[in-house]
Write a protein that binds this DNA or RNA. Structure first.
Lengths: 254, 254
DNA sequence: CAGTGGTCTAGACCACCGC
DNA sequence: CGGTGGTCTAGACCACTGG
């Protein structure tokens, strides 16, 4: 679902919605800002409806409308009788949703990952544009191979904006987790909340084919991802290649 | 968005929601049934909120919750100051969303269509299952070639349940519209409201390649679609093949 | 202008959860 | 049991649309 939230309350904090701005829309933006800034960590519960409503001097129904926006946006999750919780980010195994790698027919656990290369370099014009970086900014570039049961299946090229992901440019890559998104959160405080995946088909280059143990020119599926944090900033560019014959994806139309 | 509506009111009509059933959920199901049965044709406006609320002896807010469900489901569309309208079904050009066929770089109009074959035959076990037909039921099978600017680009195989689509088994296929979904609506009274597309990759057979003017064994993208009417019944199975290198699709994650 | 949907209120009562 | 979110009410007022 596409949701455009009203602009967040400016600076310190305005205690009033802008004119022409609905109260619940403004409230949602306000709560979103507090979540993004870490006031409530993913997994924790917000104060009860009644409390929040009284705090903001607003009727229950109005507060509920604000929460509904954030729920629709995937930022919050409500549980009857328990509370309203900040959702955890994306798990990181989501790339498998595009492929049907199996082991004898059974569904597979998350693949093992190995970092092949790690470089610090200047962002290309396109990368800077997508990541919202100034011209000439540095990025961290990773090449990663993901294997299932010892067989290489996915080849990834990852670009990360650099002041933000500094902690990753020094640590020992051999000790990294198999899943990057939970590690982004733990090590860099970045929660991946949403992503856009662009799918297409191509042919493997000789280098790529060698790493995936396929023939050069073998058909491959490519997933180009832009991943966003809870504030809506793009914080990761990723290109993933895999055997086209293993590709499968289901989409809902309308 | 995935929404499970409560079961529709049984038979004639119960004037009360079942126990353990929310009033607005029941109301939504009731309105959905009236829309599906053609009481309000796509494009027409429903009675005003206040009227509907009074008719059903319910508060405004409750009625609005019911309408919100149907809006989220894509069945209704609300326009501030104008009214609440029944949405038209899918247009039928939706297959192009998976491919980037261009003519010199410009976006293209809907492709021209030609029916290659039309047969009435017994439904396979899988087709009968998917379409909710009894064993031994008949289906209409179409093979269709869609062309852009004279170039064949998509090859389709379409299966339709037969009592429902009888009007299509007799008429002259040369006079058919380029887009099938609007014709389903006009000729058979069937409104396509939603579809599930399963994407995969393969190689063209010699026959398929000849029709698409490509080489045998050329990589192709396949879209297997199940299309549903406003009542949620599956009423069309479709398999579409196109050049894999023209394929491109963008998906939202979370 | 009259009619439509959109926002907001201040309550009441219910259903679910965990202790 | 007390606390949570879920449902429902009966209003008031605003914002948009069209004649």
């Amino acid at each position: 679902m596409e949701i455009t939230l009203p602009t967040a309350p400016t600076g310190a904090n305005a205690d009033q919605p802008a004119p022409g701005q609905s109260r619940y829309g403004w409230l949602a933006a306000s709560l979103r800002a507090r979540i993004t800034q870490g006031e409530w960590v993913p997994g924790t519960a917000l104060p009860a409806e009644a409390l929040l409503a009284k705090e903001h001097g607003v009727a229950l129904g109005t507060l509920r409308q604000a929460l509904a926006l954030l729920v629709a946006d995937g930022l919050l999750e409500r549980q009857h009788g328990r509370g309203t919780f900040v959702r955890a980010g994306l798990g990181g195994a989501s790339m498998l949703r595009f492929f049907r790698f199996r082991h004898g027919g059974e569904l597979q656990a998350a693949p093992r990952s190995r970092i092949l290369t790690r470089q610090v370099l200047l962002a290309s014009a396109e990368a800077a544009e997508a990541l919202g970086l100034p011209a000439g900014a540095s990025v961290l570039r990773l090449q990663r191979l993901r294997s299932l049961d010892g067989q290489p299946v996915l080849l990834e090229d990852i670009t990360l904006p650099l002041p933000l992901f500094d902690p990753l440019s020094a640590s020992d890559t051999a000790a990294w987790d198999d899943l990057l998104y939970p590690m982004y959160q733990r090590v860099c405080g970045v929660t991946i909340h949403r992503a856009e995946d662009c799918l297409s088909f191509g042919l493997l280059s000789a280098d790529q084919a060698a790493l995936l143990k396929l023939d050069a020119g073998h058909p491959c599926a490519q997933v180009q991802r832009r991943a966003f944090d809870m504030g809506g900033r793009c914080v990761e560019l990723r290109s993933t290649l895999g055997d086209a014959f293993a590709f499968q994806y289901t989409a809902q139309v309308r």
